[in-house]
Amino acid sequence: MDLQTAAQINSFLAAFVLLTAFGMLAQKRIYSLIHLFAWQGFFLSINTAIVAYVAGKHHLYISSVLTLSLKVIALPYILHILVVKLKIRKEVETMVNIPTTMLIGIALVIFSYYLTAPVTELSRLITRSTIAVALATVMIGLLMMITRKKAVTQIIGFLAMENGLFFAATSATYGMPLVVELGVALDVLIAAFIFGIFFFHIHTTFDSLDVEQMTRLKEGD
């Protein structure tokens, strides 16, 4: 595979990652949201493997497999089980309506391109054109966390943000050193366990997973 093709495939997959990010912003059904998250991880994993092949970075294969097992299989599976067990039937509820969030999302993409312009200019890697997309994915994940009412959707936003960070590391520097990648994966795994426990706590205490009910801690006046 020559560099030209590799760069094109890389951009193509980046487009899909961004597309799934927007898909998650627009999605109203919780199961589809989890599936979209899995798809995003899948595209990331393929992209990492291709970069590993083209650039000859063997440790990226490990990251790729890690992404595949953790973010495409394990986490969506855990989320799926939680949604079934906690009988979350209601659809995704948002604080801001969906068309507005999409518009904010587009603004964030433009902002990301503006912000990363100096970095892209300095880079010599074939993946340099996707740094902006990676930052945009982080920002959209953040947007999702802010605008959603349910704990489950907030967590998916959190994980999507983590996807974006992983993507950023791959496209800006061909991945962080292996020890860091492994540590980050471990942290994500622990976080997954914690929010799993949390869902049950919130569910039993508030009788729903609606974070809007969490309004007891306010400044006294």
Binding site: M161, F198, I202, F206, M214, R216, L217
Partner: peptide, 17 residues
């Protein structure tokens, strides 16, 4: 308690971000 869970959730999400 409800307030403790709320505080921990906030801590988790905001520090995560």
């Amino acid at each position: 308690t409800p307030t403790a869970i709320e505080a921990a959730w906030k801590y988790f999400i905001l520090c995560g971000v």
